[in-house]
Amino acid sequence: MISIPVALGARSYDVLIEDGALDSAADHLDPWLHGPAVVVTDEHVAARQLPRLAASLDIRPVILPAGEGTKSWSGLENLLDQLLTLGLERGDHVIALGGGVIGDLVGFAASILKRGCNFIQIPTSLLAQVDSSVGGKTAINTVAGKNLVGSFHQPSFVLIDPTVLDTLPPRELRAGYAEVVKYGLIDDFAFFEWCEANAAALLAGDSAARAEAIGRSIAAKAAIVAADERETLDRRALLNLGHTFGHALEAETGFSDRLLHGEAVAAGIALAFAFSAERGLCAGQEATRVAAHLAAAGLPTTLAAAGVSASGAALVAHMAHDKKMSGGRLPFLLARGIGRTYVDKTVDLADVAAFLDRAV
């Protein structure tokens, strides 16, 4: 068992990581539950994991369609109507059992239901376990772009059971790995080296490697969130490595299963390092090393591999809707080397468009 605190004063909470935690959920969640627990999940997770949770907890399930399309205005309205029908009160806790889509949607619904109620995260994908379940960012997607409507709303508790990854489709597991290696690339070269040595074992199901990756990723994110909860400083922005490019790729592919979020982030990371190398910020060998590692993990590292053939201008047009845009400038996460990521607010989008045209 590993317990990692997210220190946010009155909004502090713990992240508990334990094999088999889903089967003993009642013991872990007792402080927050009073009566049957409202559990929101999707059709895929319901089939694989809901019976395990139901064997431990008295639950009232809300089962939503699987996929990024659920994280939408209509999906939010549907969820809110169901929660209100169930009589959820402001002091109750709704449980998000699922990956990043369910966690983001449930967190946002909880933040606005009756002007704010509580929620608990039980992430079931690697991506959610190492990243999206912690930090309080909640949102839905809109026609204009990804995560443009949302709120900061911290969970009361995060319960992580690595054994649920045993039933995760290999493609989703690989996609989640992009968010693991990200932490090494931001500011922890030693962790990137660990990833190079252990990625194959992690993806093959090695429980020790998974526990190590999840624990180190959560500890890194908890420290960043504690220092910059609402991204008012540049510190939390570092967690967006690969996301500016990646979100544009997701928008171009319609936020669909054509390109999973983690796959888009992987391609975005490779593009960010290639762009950094082209600008003379880091050595070309380092950009090549990063791309080679991501490719070895089965992740896309080019526009073509991501299934994107759009022009640089079209991709930059998606970036123009980014919520971080300020004064006509978009901050980019670039790198001076592996483990040396920084925020650059001087990038001209015309230069990015030209780079993307060359990168095709």
Rank of each mutant, 00 (worst) to 15 (best):
V62A: 11
T85R: 15
A199R: 11
A272I: 05
L79W: 01
A350R: 12
E278M: 11
M1F: 11
Y177R: 01
A201L: 09
L97P: 02
A55T: 14
V134N: 03
A199G: 04
A277C: 08
E18V: 11
A353S: 07
H34E: 14
P36I: 06
H93T: 10
M1C: 11
A201T: 01
R174I: 03
A264Q: 00
I269L: 12
S72E: 08
E263G: 09
S309R: 15
A305H: 10
V143C: 14
N147W: 07
Q82E: 14
E89G: 14
P155G: 00
E196Y: 02
L22D: 05
G99D: 03
I63K: 12
L185H: 01
L88C: 15
A320N: 15
E263S: 07
K182V: 00
R60Y: 13
A304N: 13
D228Y: 01
R210H: 09
A144P: 11
D344Y: 09
S12M: 08
A359C: 01
S311K: 09
I17S: 06
L315T: 04
L159R: 04
L86G: 15
S24T: 15
A211D: 14
T163G: 12
L64P: 12
N118Q: 13
D166Y: 13
R236H: 03
V6S: 03
L233K: 15
V134E: 01
A227N: 09
D357K: 05
